[in-house]
């Protein structure tokens, strides 16, 4: 778009963006920079403002406060039609009255490309995406998965600065999700697109993202790579939201965290603290005089999950399925992988 956008590597910038609907605050002061070619996921519980943030990027809502820059240009007051942002809608939003080809060619045609040229381009993208034979069908004559791919093709065809996905897999058959999401990821990398992806499925977020933005009540709770978030959650909310976590309250003294029956090294100043320990970072030792007791076990197919009581607290521990099963009431000792202990702020 603009020349100086190359010098600065940022595709999207949120600067103190606020969106209010009447009295309700959907987005409450977001600062965020998204680099070119990156796939960033907005993750968070229902109603936390993910869709609203996405629509702000698209220009389908304008911020009540703050600024939004796309490719270096302030677009805070520009309507959707004057930005260049592609969007894949949850319901796909294909135009039911025109053919697949016309759907995909719509963006280029609107932006002034000649019809024949736009069609040629749309054909190319459809072929590339594996929908070669379906040009002349109406959207209603496609399967759900095919419709989804047409929607993606349509968004790509307009050569957007940014491509947005709002829960693109929610209408896809559960079995197909894994396949479709890796397809989306592959396309994004192949076309070198900057992408923003909304989901409330944490596993999906971990699988596709370069970085994840976890939102809570209209604010950003934490930004980081999937590994950052999983291994080093900043708060109890994050630890709980992404994966399972044991949250334990206690005190830090001289570099060691102590709670009932626990004593592990952590960093940081002395004082009351809480830590998060992932269930797979705790190993169980079968020793008769162990301080903990198995409360119950759950068979999860790929692993076993045990609830273990240690003093007054109950911990979740996961254990490979190949290990022998443990009985309820059995005494055990806990061996905690100190690398898996994260101090929460």
């Amino acid at each position: 778009m603009k020349d100086n956008a190359e010098t600065q590597d940022l595709a999207i910038e949120f600067v103190g963006v606020v969106k209010r609907f009447g009295d309700a605050v959907a987005v409450d002061g977001i600062d965020l920079a998204i680099r070119r070619g990156e796939l960033v996921t907005f993750l968070g519980p229902s109603g936390c403002g993910k869709t609203t943030s996405l629509r702000l990027i698209a220009g389908l809502e304008l911020p009540s406060d703050g600024h939004l820059r796309i490719a270096g240009r302030d677009v805070s007051r520009d309507p959707a039609s004057e930005r260049n942002v592609g969007m894949v809608f949850q319901s796909y939003a294909l135009f039911p009255h025109v053919s697949v080809l016309d759907n995909v060619a719509y963006g280029p045609v609107i932006r002034g490309v000649k019809k024949a040229e736009a069609h040629a381009k749309a054909r190319g993208i459809l072929d590339q995406i594996g929908l070669g034979g379906l040009h002349d069908r109406l959207p209603a004559e496609l399967s759900g998965g095919q419709q989804q791919r047409v929607a993606v093709a349509r968004a790509i065809a307009q050569q957007p600065d940014v491509i947005l996905f709002d829960e693109p897999l929610s209408n896809v058959d559960a079995k197909l999700r894994r396949k479709v999401r890796s397809e989306i990821r592959a396309l994004q990398q192949e076309f070198g697109l900057t992408a923003v992806y909304v989901t409330h499925d944490q596993e999906e977020a971990l699988a596709v993202s370069d970085r994840i933005v976890v939102m809570d009540k209209g604010r950003i709770a934490q930004v980081g790579t999937p590994e950052d978030l999983y291994e080093r959650p900043a708060s109890a909310f994050i630890a709980n939201f992404i994966g399972d976590a044991n949250l334990i309250e206690g005190r830090v003294m001289a570099g060691r965290f102590a709670a009932e029956g626990l004593d592990v090294p952590v960093s940081g100043a002395d004082g009351p603290a809480s830590v998060s320990i992932r269930p797979e970072r705790i190993a169980l030792d079968l020793s008769a005089d162990g301080p903990a007791r198995i409360a119950s076990g759950t068979y999860l197919g790929s692993r076993m999950e045990y609830a273990v009581t240690l003093g007054g607290t109950e911990l979740l521990v996961s254990r490979p399925i190949s290990e022998p099963r443990l009985e309820a009431g059995q005494p055990v000792a806990l061996r905690i992988d100190t690398g898996g202990v994260t101090r929460l702020s």
């Binding site: 959707a80 039609s81 939003a93 009255h97 349509r154 307009q158």
Partner: peptide, 24 residues
Amino acid sequence: SMEEASQTMGAGGAKTLRNVVLPL
């Protein structure tokens, strides 16, 4: 969202109305 899709593809209100809304 069909209209919104049309807008994100660069069609202003009038074009969206003509291409998407009116036919439907």
